[in-house]
Design a protein around this nucleic acid. Sequence first.
DNA 1: TAATAACCTCGCAA
DNA 2: ATTGCGAGGTTAT
Length: 299
Amino acid sequence: MTTKQSINISQPLDLEQTLESGQAFRWRRADGNKWAGVIDGNIWVLSKKENVIEIESSADPVGGLVNSFHSYFRLDDDLLSIQKEIGTDEFVSAGITKNPGLRILRQNPWETLVAFILSSTSNVPRIARTMELLATELGNPLELNEIKRNSFPGPDALIRAGEQHLRNLKCGFRAPYMISAANYVESGIIDLESLCDVSYSESLDTLKKIPGVAEKIADCVMLFSLEHLEAFPIDRWIRRALTNWYGFDEKASYQLCAEWARSKFHGFSGYANQYIYWDIRQSERPMIGSGSTKALTPK
DNA sequence: TAATAACCTCGCAA
DNA sequence: ATTGCGAGGTTAT
């Protein structure tokens, strides 16, 4: 049942920069410079040599492994031309220089929605831990060679589990939000996939109906799973870049800043956001605990 | 309309 | 050991 492919890629792609930059939460390093993750009900193990990706999957996805891989890593994005377009900005340009192989992913919308509902007042390691726990407890078992992981549970499984069970699984005050989201999706009142085909603002309005989802989380979901590359999520880190580098007032409204970014970076403000975000996160290493979130020095 | 506390949990620092 | 604080936010007051 397990399948294996070699894929020759012509697009820039750095697995570490892409999978560790805080947009996806279920990737783990495996032996031999490989990466293991769970993508739409399959375990994938990836490695890269030169321009060849080796991919092993626990089963062949519908539509084929190569197509799934292309889709997940957005190899349809012409990264060099996007980088050229947004690299006119010096800070984005610096980010691109440090992480030239960082790509935005095209992830499963439901899983991405849950992940970012969980991100509220949290941090990356904890989001990853909780996502894994949800899969372990509520998903279906999968196996590839010696690797055992579980699929991420669908909305039906979260509804069946119920709020209290989700609280027991460390979701905290986000548990009722997740149940609401699951009900919207399972009932068909919100069709996540269809949000790919409507405008940014219509998609935003729809996502904001879900309790626990406001601008920031909606932007993350739209950027990482719903084809809206103009989404510009503003978290604490991006906020600081906006004030320290771009001269915005600390309390400039979310919408004002995001609109500014959309007009500055054309359709690709989401990519610009990711290069800035990950550059900051990498350089500001002692992020938690050390207390000194020392100010970014402009330029 | 704008500010502020409360919300689960975890990990670090004093 | 125990306590306080803040972490990729949002909601209610």
